[in-house]
């Protein structure tokens, strides 16, 4: 365990040194604060449901931004170390390959978690300071959004690691990372929407649609946050979907956890067979 933590701590320190942590945290805080105050405009000064509106804005931001940050952080993690020769030295120490992988993963996850919690925490603090009387329900939804955002970041760090262990070239790993982002964040939903429009909503049964939504971590995240809480759903225009309640929040979280563990396990398996 201490081996894994040592490697994770080193990864975090690297992140602090090359300003990754500072840059991502500032970026997320700036965007979160902007969205919070812009998002306050339509609700007016009464501030009804302002937390809910913020959750809708922030989770939309998360879907685009966090996977990108996570992939940028992770695509080079394994292939870069092998390329530079630092992996060879690391593995000549009493470190198993899965330990090296898991340690680095935890370090990168900690960086993502820090940036998310601090960045979005600013938005939370701003709400707390400016909006009177926020109910515990709203705070619960906000906390769930924070937690699931970190989980989504972890999913894409894990996917980035898979890309990084699969290929021998850093450029290829970067290309795969960009492709992963495009597919999961943009193209998948466009395709799904196109399919629904083309079949006038008749072609896909509820079961198949649910399966397709679970098959994309970004969609699972979106549903969890926008439809998982009734109040938020009202503002997100997802009330209808939420009312159906076909996908329980627990199931969506499970899907996200699966999306985190599966690529990570797969990359550990590939790394254990790879020539260093």
């Amino acid at each position: 365990m201490s081996t894994i933590l040592t490697i994770a701590a080193k990864e975090v320190r690297d992140g602090l040194r090359n300003r990754w942590v500072a840059a991502t945290t500032l970026l997320m805080a700036a965007l979160a604060l902007t969205l919070t105050f812009l998002g306050a405009a339509p609700t007016g000064t009464v501030g009804v449901g302002q937390v809910e509106v913020t959750i809708v804005s922030l989770s939309s931001l998360t879907i685009f931004l966090l996977p990108l940050l996570a992939l940028l952080l992770s695509f080079d993690a394994i292939v870069g170390e092998i390329d530079r020769g630092t992996m060879l030295l690391l593995l000549s120490y009493p470190v198993a390959r899965w330990q090296a992988l898991l340690g680095k993963f935890l370090g990168h996850l900690a960086i993502i978690a820090f940036a998310t919690l601090c960045g979005y925490g600013c938005a939370g603090a701003a709400l707390w300071a400016t909006v009177p009387a926020i109910g515990p329900q709203s705070w619960a939804a906000f906390a769930a959004m924070l937690g699931s955002s970190v989980l989504l970041g972890g999913v894409f760090v894990s996917l980035g690691y898979l890309a990084s262990t699969l290929v021998r070239d850093r450029g290829t790993a970067a290309g795969i990372a960009v492709a992963l982002w495009l597919v999961f964040v943009l193209l998948y939903d466009m395709g799904l929407l196109g399919l629904l429009v083309a079949t006038q909503g008749q072609g896909l049964g509820t079961g198949l649609l649910n399966a397709l939504l679970l098959a994309n971590p970004a969609d699972a995240y979106r549903l969890f946050n926008l439809a998982g809480f009734a109040e938020v759903g009202r503002y997100a225009g997802m009330a209808g979907l939420a009312a159906h309640g076909t996908l329980a929040p627990g199931l969506l979280l499970l899907a996200l956890a699966g999306w985190l563990l599966l690529p990570l396990g797969l990359s550990a398996l590939i790394l254990s067979r790879r020539q260093i």
Partner: peptide
């Protein structure tokens, strides 16, 4: 000691 030893430059 590997040939052409490399370290993390930030440390």
């Amino acid at each position: 000691l590997p040939e052409n030893v490399a370290f993390h430059p930030g440390m």
